[in-house]
Write a protein that binds this DNA or RNA. Structure first.
Length: 326
DNA sequence: GAAAATACCCGCCAGT
DNA sequence: GTACTGGCGGGTATTT
């Protein structure tokens, strides 16, 4: 997932989450939890979070709640990040006030984000035409049929395309919001936010791994979980399918199938993700040379590290270090 | 950036 | 008949 370039390191760091009648409280809660809570470890330069309603003062919300927004239309019009946290229904028309404000925000260069069904709102504005986007897998067919110009990527937890970001099902919104924090403040801060949420800083794989697949048998999942931890703790070593399959008493072919079912990606791709993730941490927190890091995390050479780092993050390791290293 | 060796990925199919 | 497993082989990706 390439790093966002639209937020300019949160220089204008107002984040507005749009609230609406029959609000999806979980999706809204994600945006407040990540952008709205105070982060003393970051200092004063954290996001300024507001909720803004385009549908009046008292709004019904999921769970029998009634909510009021604390922000104004002016906040919305000044925000550089605007989030649509879910939507009340795939068949619910998007009011003109929403499309007008979002199109206007887009024209002035705001970063626009949707979580789960919020993609229907962005699509109604035409913001997703010709762009890569995702939504909850159960809504995907409907979204694609109604808006055929969207390049729907179902095998992603979230997408970013030219300042327009979309996430898959509800909890993938957390992954997307952490990605935004990572883009604005770096991996260390994003990991710190993730730790407070008691979740992994960078979940791997797409929602394809959650689409009505049979749950792996528990003992198989345990064996493969052991493999994941084993690889993580020995990233600098070479790992071959043949050896790993032997360790968990599976044939290579079955190992490949089970691994993909569990992680959503082939072994090598998963290992590469882990290695590049570790690289980003080392770039931020150590003064090691690229060659040393490449050897530490098992990528062999500096050239190889550069290749895969750029492929995953969209920027060079040096640019990453310059941007985020303390 | 190109080339070669190596390993991986995955569709296919037969066996259980 | 169905589901799962494991071997084969061609195409692809990674590494040097």
């Amino acid at each position: 997932m390439p790093f966002s370039t639209s937020s300019k390191n949160a220089q204008n760091n107002t984040v507005v989450s749009i609230v609406y009648e029959n609000l999806c409280t979980f999706e809204f809660g994600i945006t407040h939890e990540i952008f709205g809570l105070k982060r003393p470890e970051v200092g004063a330069d954290w996001y300024r979070f507001k909720s803004v309603s385009l549908e009046g003062d008292k709004l019904a919300a999921a769970g029998g709640l009634t909510v009021s927004a604390n922000g104004t239309l002016t906040d919305l019009r000044r925000a550089n990040t605007i989030i649509v946290p879910g939507w009340r229904g795939a068949d619910e028309a998007v009011p003109k006030a929403f499309t007008d404000e979002l199109i206007r925000a887009r024209k002035r260069g705001a970063r626009i984000i949707s979580i789960c069904g919020g993609a229907f709102v962005l699509a109604a504005c035409g913001l997703l035409d010709g762009k890569r986007a995702t939504t909850h897998w159960r809504l995907a067919q409907q979204l694609q049929a109604r808006y055929p110009d969207i390049m729907l990527e179902l095998n992603q937890l979230y997408t970013e395309d030219d300042g327009i970001l979309t996430s898959a099902g509800s909890s993938a919104g957390i992954d997307l919001c952490l990605h935004v924090v990572r883009s604005d403040y770096g991996a260390s801060i994003a990991n710190s936010v993730a730790r407070r949420l008691v979740m992994h800083g960078h979940r791997l794989g797409g929602q394809a791994q959650y689409i009505e697949q049979p749950v792996p048998k528990i003992y198989e999942a345990d064996r493969l979980s052991w493999v994941l931890e084993h690889i993580r703790s020995t990233l600098g070593h070479t790992h071959h399918i043949s050896e790993l399959a032997k360790k968990v008493a599976m044939s290579e072919r079955t190992f490949q199938r089970r691994f993909r079912a569990l992680t959503g990606m082939p072994l090598l791709q998963w290992i590469l993700h882990e290695r590049i993730q570790r690289t980003s941490q080392l770039l931020e927190t150590s003064a090691s040379s690229l060659d040393e890091i490449a050897n530490t995390i098992g990528l062999g050479s500096e050239e190889n590290l550069r290749l895969h780092f750029r492929r995953q993050y969209g920027i060079s390791p040096k640019a990453f270090r310059d941007r985020f290293s303390k």
